[in-house]
Design a binder for these strands. Structure first.
Lengths: 150, 150
DNA sequence: CGGAATCTTGACTATTTTATCAGGTATTGT
DNA sequence: ACAATACCTGATAAAATAGTCAAGATTCCG
């Protein structure tokens, strides 16, 4: 059970933009240096985020990337979704091994509700969190989440 | 965000064993047929489950696999854990990209609590569920989970 | 005993996901 | 205009995951 590295790194990159207070856009190189990633990889991630409408690019000298909207309006769920699937069991029930072209449990699958409930919780949780929330110290955030969610 | 196919298929296979009421063990072939997987793949999965002490094998003619303990005592969490990681962000904070040998956010990572809370919820939830619970119709289970968990 | 049924193992191949590379295109400042 | 800066794109390489194959070991039964 894991998130893809694109999702994790993408979240970090966009968080970089959210934390960047200056008016000037942030270049790919700056983000890459901050996160210790290669510029090529950061590039790729940002292109995906741009296609999802979460960041926008400014070309030319002094160009770079900025958030498309205020950090408060960008939920973690949106960021992760744009970089890959967020639901847990979804892909499995669509991939089938060899012999049949539909899930053996089509009619009655007792595993489905397990993923269902988890997905619902995960999605709700990630939708409530936005980049502004994440833009505070680890301890503050932890406290806030625990107060709010448990 | 996804579970590995080994985890999904492994859960299905051990669920097969749990649902198998006869005294005789179930052969790899029978499980494979029921789940529409190849015998080789089922084999591989069962070996893993055996190493985790969740099933035991009986060799020779009339052999096969049986649960190592009553289905009530086997939690879904244990099954999934034995087949791969269950925690979400764990592997990411240990994999690093290229340039440094430790996480850039070591000291103060606001993403960590996000995975932390999710992991805690997921783990609790999957620990409460056992194979006996799953061994009922989709609708019954769904009702039970929703009553209990939300 | 001897062979059929069944598990056991490890190496191998295929597919998907990650990450890099290199060459291209757009924009801006001077 | 033009050179510098920075985004854009598609091909390719590397690594991880998924799935297959083949030969071996163990047990049962006649």
């Amino acid at each position: 059970m894991k998130i893809s590295s694109m999702q994790e790194y993408g979240l970090r990159c966009i968080l970089c933009l959210a934390a960047h207070k200056c008016d000037t856009p942030m270049t790919v190189r700056e983000i890459a240096e901050k996160e210790c990633l290669t510029t090529d990889y950061v590039e790729k991630i940002l292109v995906t985020l741009r296609h999802a409408g979460l960041v926008k690019s400014i070309r030319g000298v002094n160009g770079g990337y900025v958030l498309e909207m205020p950090s408060k309006e960008i939920s973690v769920a949106k960021v992760l979704e744009s970089l890959g699937p967020v639901e847990l069991g979804k892909s499995i029930c669509k991939r089938f091994s060899g012999e049949t072209d539909k899930c053996v449990h089509q009619g009655n699958c007792s595993i489905r509700p397990v993923w269902g409930v988890l997905n619902q919780f995960i999605y709700k949780f990630l939708s409530r969190l936005n980049l502004e929330n994440l833009n505070q110290s680890e301890n503050e955030l932890k406290a806030e989440i625990e107060r709010q969610c448990i």
